[in-house]
């Protein structure tokens, strides 16, 4: 893939991630816990890890968090989503590059969602200066398993499609 091609693709993926985050706000929250989200944007993060690598995944996450903080949220939202986003990217990358044989995409996604929630919780502890929010930890861990499974299934289908597309792309270029 040439450089320009890559930048365009990454930019597209960032916008996809933001659209997914936006769509997510329309899904009613079944559990009255702050920070409990489906985390659809994680799908994009996974795709970038799989097809572009760790560095690009971090890039996409940072840009996405910064943009959505500027557009929809504020600095606090930025810190929250960045803490969750970076931690989940790190965890998913490590699992993907080191333990791919043992784990499926869905497993990696679940670990990523759990890490995302844990990261946000740590951010909350630092920002609010109180440890009492840690009582949410068990619920958030379980919630991460559930949401991670759902987004993992999506990622699995999408990465299949992506693979197919890239193969045909490669063939096109050879012609």
């Amino acid at each position: 893939m040439i450089k320009l091609h890559r930048i365009v693709l990454l930019a597209l993926l960032v916008s996809q991630a933001m659209v997914l985050s936006f769509i997510e706000t329309f899904i009613p929250n079944p559990v009255p816990i702050p920070g409990f989200k489906l985390g659809l944007a994680n799908i994009v993060t996974m795709l970038v890890i799989f097809f572009f690598g760790f560095g690009d995944a971090v890039l996409v996450v940072v840009v996405r968090c910064a943009l959505s903080a500027i557009l929809f949220g504020g600095p606090v939202v930025f810190i929250f989503s960045l803490a969750g986003g970076i931690l989940s990217t790190v965890v998913m990358s490590v699992l993907y590059y080191r333990m791919r044989e043992m784990l499926s995409i869905i497993g990696i996604s679940m670990a990523g969602a759990v890490a995302h929630n844990a990261g946000q919780l740590v951010a909350a502890v630092v920002l609010m200066g109180t440890l009492s929010v840690f009582s949410y930890l068990p619920v958030l861990l379980i919630a991460g398993l559930v949401t991670g499974f759902i987004t993992g299934v999506c990622s699995r289908q999408l990465s299949k499609a992506f693979q197919k597309w890239r193969r045909s792309e490669g063939q096109n270029r050879e012609k």
């Binding site: 450089k3 560095g55 890039l59 940072v62 968090c65 903080a69 504020g74 600095p75 810190i79 920002l127």
Partner: peptide
Amino acid sequence: KFKAKCLSLPLTLALLGAALAACRL
């Protein structure tokens, strides 16, 4: 080289965000 350039933008944004956050906090 390309990567460094590419990272500088989000890093600036991140710093800006952090500064804003500090004010808000």
